[in-house]
Design a protein around this nucleic acid. Structure first.
Lengths: 160, 160
DNA sequence: GCTCAGCAATTGATTGATCAGCAATTGAGA
DNA sequence: TCTCAATTGCTGATCAATCAATTGCTGAGC
């Protein structure tokens, strides 16, 4: 067998490997899921999924203030990414920027009254989609294992 | 209790719900995982993760030809997205466009020799990352359930 | 107290996606 | 046979992210 055929063969084996398939599945499922949420949130509440993720963090406690730095780390965004995201959210009246008491480099972000109201509506939409496409398709017993497994993956990723 | 406090309360409960947390975990884990793969592939093989996904499909069989339409559906890209992706891949010498025998609207895409060689190297990098961050963190027994669950999610998404 | 390495946020340029709209092609029904 | 809706791929405009460079501020070492 000549080298070119050998290469084609190896390539076919690699392309068909179940590891490759399974991994593709994870990425594809997550991407579609996020797209679904994003579309629903934009249509019904005029917020992107990313903005929703920011609001989750700002609405955990009334009056909660979080620095842009921390938000960026949390959402896996760069500092410039978070600057522009908060720009848009501020423009939409969802959040407010304020100075950080101990450090004048840092900017604290806080949800406005309007931001909280939008979050409340968005959370209902979010719950609907998640229930339908994430919880329902997974049998009860599998659910716990799934989330545990995802936690382990995430830990492995964060730790490096 | 006045209405504003009630709203804050509801918002806090929604933000803290474990459904919201778990879902966030899935998205975050998948996003980070993809980012990791993408970075590794770009650094070591000068291909994006999306290009890699195209190559997987083109390298399953030697001489395999797939229409742009089918690739777009498979990768959840729009038709313009796939056009530009294939433009770049063609520019990099990874794939070749050709006419579709039965339908003159359609364009068939095929991997070049160089594309196959790059895919082979990329598959090794891919396997390393997947092994480390996807397989290893998940205990043996959990692995099958995880993939099964993901399959169910994906099916639910595709069916609508 | 002074300096200087390092961090937070912002801005400009670039990348890679989307959407809307277009031309060419197809195929099914009047 | 002709017409017309649907489909494929392409192009221009826009959006949201990245990187790189810049500004302002902090804090540790001398």
């Amino acid at each position: 067998m000549n080298p070119a055929n050998r290469e084609n063969d190896d390539a076919a084996r690699a392309a068909g490997s179940s590891l490759v398939q399974d991994f593709g599945l994870l990425i594809k499922a997550a991407t579609r899921l996020e797209q679904r949420i994003d579309t629903a949130l934009r249509r019904e509440c005029e917020v992107s999924h990313t903005m929703f993720e920011v609001l989750i963090r700002l609405c955990r406690r009334p009056g909660e203030e979080i620095s842009q730095r921390r938000l960026a780390d949390d959402l896996t965004l760069t500092s410039s990414g978070i600057t522009r995201l908060i720009d848009r959210m501020e423009g939409a009246g969802l959040v407010r920027r304020g100075p950080a008491p101990g450090d004048r480099r840092s900017v604290l972000v806080e949800a406005t009254e309007h931001g909280r109201a939008v979050f409340l509506r968005a959370a209902a939409v979010h719950a609907q989609v998640v229930e339908r496409y994430f919880v329902a398709p997974v049998a009860r017993a599998d659910y716990a294992r799934l989330t545990h497994a995802l936690g382990e993956i995430d830990k492995a990723l964060r730790d490096t």
